[in-house]
Design a protein around this nucleic acid. Structure first.
Lengths: 388, 388
DNA sequence: TTAGTTTGTTTATCCAATAAACTAACTTTA
DNA sequence: TAAAGTTAGTTTATTGGATAAACAAACTAA
């Protein structure tokens, strides 16, 4: 039977608590009086809620603020050190882990190379990484509040890993594995979804409610934030836009389709378009050559941007969001690709849709997915933790 | 300043009222005791809510039901005749209006041809249609609760019509125009969005939470229902998937893009693929010929299905919904197109995504958009109407 | 010094949900 | 046919949020 969410006073308290906590996070430091003003809640309601938040160490008072012509207000701030969160981005050939406070500020950061690691070695490295973070974590009332992990593959609604194309290991129930070892809530998410959420919570687009995140690597992954929430689809498989056909007569893709976007607009495609001796060139070298105005490279990058622009136009026609974030080292490092994309998009997209949507390179860079994983953990902690 | 939704007891009552009303709508007739069981609300809470709903004529008692071994329950039903709603679908060359009760049952229905009407004539016909419905509407406690209108064009978040490609008239503020004349709430919506909502509320997919609706006509329009709600995008322009590129080198489209899906998979494209003397053939004739196994026609329809399948694969990769509804007379009338689509989709879509999503022809047919407009009106009436 | 302002708490009240006790109306059992 | 058991729905007292109003505290400005 379907479980229905009934409403009662506990729900009211929980909703208003979230309202107040969100305002404190956004406008810290802030007084009870101002909270009452901007939320519309009664002064006494705010006082009561603030007291419970103080008792539970979620916030604390930092003393008196500036007077506005009367009694000086007591300023409240979010207690970002009430607990800590770990976020881990498991890539095809790397592992990027961060330890953050409850505001997402990075305390520790560690990256490992996985290019020659077996499945059991990956597991060992992962466990060692987390244990290392736990050991070096400062004392706090709540300690480690959870672990968020993202992987480049399909993750279903029960956080089971269903399919990982470019990887030779597959631990289906990663959540259970980690939860058993560390005894804290664990969240497993798709890499692009995590990146999208990271950009929504901590990036340039933190004040937007609807964004599309596009991560361009070996393939193309996409994540959707709709009405401030990750849209994962019914099964959890939403956003496989890398496999959108942009040429129905195009070459066969490993997914079964033809002429998929990522066959033209991924880094793999970019490398394939270069001359033979450059096929194994690194991202850094690509940017360096572009900075030296290497003509062949600039042409290849323009071509790269051209194809990204084609798929992007489809996405803009589909979604009508406030911003699209592009997560790719080359795009973040040299302006030529983004400029080409913008040209291509504005020549293709309908004039009525063009004007409002921002096209931005990722501001969080390679940490976007790990930060997204962290914010899923923090969100859950702040909304789930029971308050008497 | 942003208006924040604070929570209080009024919200609790409103939420639980909706819960109870929804269950009565779904499982009518139903007793107070059963309502308490399936919602999880306390018996006395249900009694109190039911009493207010009775006072306000939203529901009524139809007498005692079957005993389950004790006192016989008093059965409650939704009062579908408490008021009436009007839904109007303004097409490129037609106008389809319906008058319904609060359950969406059609009381009156009227279609007019607009193929040779000027802007002022359209307005006259529209007004006459509504006046006619109002005149023939039965007596009821609430009378006409609102009018929903859908148009084939871009409608922004303030219900202003921004752009209508295939039409020579454009009354930007249609909402104000109708509201001034009839003094009831008026809702203006895009045709595909309305159709999607109609299928979500009254169609085969009424129990699904995430669907994509694709309306194939002169062009292709799409509507999205995500988490039971219409996703309209930030500006209200979401779902222009007809202008998704499926061949980036393809022919120029009027929208500015190249190789748009609707250049290949619309009815316009189907007609263009037929031989010269058949260019002005009607939909009915197309189906008749297909039923007579006319080889040329069957080939054309297979081709039609092929191209629909290509775009549909992109949509399935993007959304991961429970069902996709195809609204098109030919598809609803002859199985060959849908079969071709299904073949094409399953050969193209990734095996992990394929299995769950249903592909269905519209069960509401040409009334889908008008019914969607009606359900927007009814939704608003049931949730907005204040209860003491 | 005094009046006025802003901040935050206390107090009494309201109201929706709830549990428990109750009445009502039926079925089953003996 | 009477008693016991069961289900339906109401009544009553209680809980626990939010709220308005009164209040105390701490400041500014005149």
């Amino acid at each position: 039977m379907v479980i229905i969410q009934i409403a009662d006073q506990a729900l009211v308290k929980k909703m208003n608590r979230k309202l107040i906590l969100d305002e404190i996070l956004k406008n810290s430091p802030i007084s009870r009086a101002t909270l009452s003003e901007i939320t519309g809640l009664n002064k006494s309601t705010v006082s009561s809620q603030v007291n419970t938040l103080l008792e539970k160490d979620f916030i604390f008072e930092i003393g008196a603020g500036q007077s506005r012509g009367g009694r000086r207000p007591v300023m409240l701030v979010f207690n970002k050190n009430a607990g800590y969160s770990i976020g881990i981005d498991i890539g095809v050939d790397y592992l990027n882990g961060i330890l953050t406070d409850l505001e997402g500020n990075i305390i520790l950061e560690k990256t490992s190379d996985l290019s020659s690691s077996s499945a059991s070695e990956v597991k060992e490295i992962l466990f060692a990484l987390i244990h290392g973070f736990v050991t070096h974590m400062p004392e706090s009332p709540y300690g480690l509040v959870g672990i968020g992990i993202c992987v480049p593959g399909l993750v279903d609604r029960h956080q089971q890993i269903i399919f990982m194309p470019n990887l030779n290991w597959n631990i289906k129930d990663l959540q259970f594995l980690i939860e058993s070892e560390f005894n804290v809530p664990v969240f497993v998410e798709n890499e692009a979804n995590a990146g999208a959420y990271g950009e929504k919570v901590f990036g340039m687009t933190k004040n937007y409610e609807n964004i599309v995140y596009i991560s361009i690597n070996v393939g193309i992954g996409t994540g959707l934030v709709i009405n401030n929430e990750l849209y994962k689809g019914v099964q959890g498989f939403s956003g496989e836009m890398g496999h959108m056909t942009i040429d129905f007569n195009g070459p066969k893709c490993s997914c079964g389709n033809r002429g998929c976007w990522e066959l033209y607009a991924s880094e793999k495609a970019l490398l394939a378009s270069l001359s033979k001796e450059e096929k194994n060139i690194s991202r850094k070298e690509i940017v360096e050559r572009a900075n030296k105005n290497d003509v062949e490279m600039l042409n290849a990058l323009q071509n790269f941007g051209f194809y990204i622009g084609i798929g992007l136009t489809n996405i803009l026609n589909t979604f009508d969001v406030e911003a699209v974030i592009l997560r790719n080292y080359i795009i973040e490092s040299h302006p030529i690709v983004l400029n080409t994309i913008k040209n291509e998009v504005s020549s293709r997209v309908h004039s009525h849709l063009d004007n409002k949507c921002e096209l931005l390179p990722s501001s969080l860079g390679k940490n976007a997915p790990a930060l997204g994983a962290v914010s899923i953990v923090i969100d859950s902690f702040l909304s789930v933790t029971p308050i008497s």
